[in-house]
Amino acid sequence: MKYSRAEIISNDKITEGIYSMKVTAETESVKPGQFYMLQPRGELLPRPISVCEIGGGWLEFCYAVVGAGTLEFSEMRVGDEINLTGPLGNGFDMDFINKHKRVAVVSGSIGIAPFIEVCKRLTCEYECFCGFHGESYLTYRFVGRNALGTPHTKIATDNGVEGHRGLVTELFDPKDFDLILACGSEGFSKAVAQMCVKANVPLLISMDRYMACGVGACLCCTCKTVNGNERCCADGPVFKGGELLW
């Protein structure tokens, strides 16, 4: 991990409130599920954004505009420079994941982002279940263009504009899989974790927390686990679902 300055190669609006930014970066050591702290110029603290796709010499970040920092990101232009620190966190262990027979990839809203790169590297059988709020399902059409584009991908939207009308957790039964991968909001994460614990199916879940340092020093982003407080940024963001306490 290091602190560096990157150039923005592209920064496109995918749908209302969802953007995808591609920046120049050294990518040899980057793992899917890791994140970077991206610095908005007008805000004090950098923002943790997970890596969506890892290319040769570039990284793509797919992000939702949720506040002043991400709003500023959405207004940045091609050629602008941005300070970032990373790669950070543990990421998904693809060797471990690919030892499984049948994996479910489950995302809530912008939680789809880390799974673009994960799906590119899956060599086992898998199915994707993606939940969205209304029109934000278009995120799937854009970022899921190749990686998630298995014929078995199922979509849920809250208003029924695409796919199943209702919750993504209504689309799958954990017992049909031997490993679940998940990323989404706090409510989504808790629901998926409880389903997996009840079904006794292992779960790897990427957690989201407000962060300050992003490197493990400040203890602002802790998650409660059976091992005590663990740092989302340095011990996670990917946790074993059964170890999290809600």
């Binding site: 004090l44 603290l45 400040c218 203890l219 602002c220 982003c221 409660k224 005590g228 407080n229």
Partner: peptide
């Protein structure tokens, strides 16, 4: 010490509030 529960950080204009609680 386990420190405080709930949110631990909140950004303010050119500052931040923390409530880590001596973990």
């Amino acid at each position: 010490r386990e420190g405080n529960g709930g949110r631990r950080v909140h950004e303010t204009p050119m500052g931040m509030l923390n409530s880590v609680g001596l973990q």
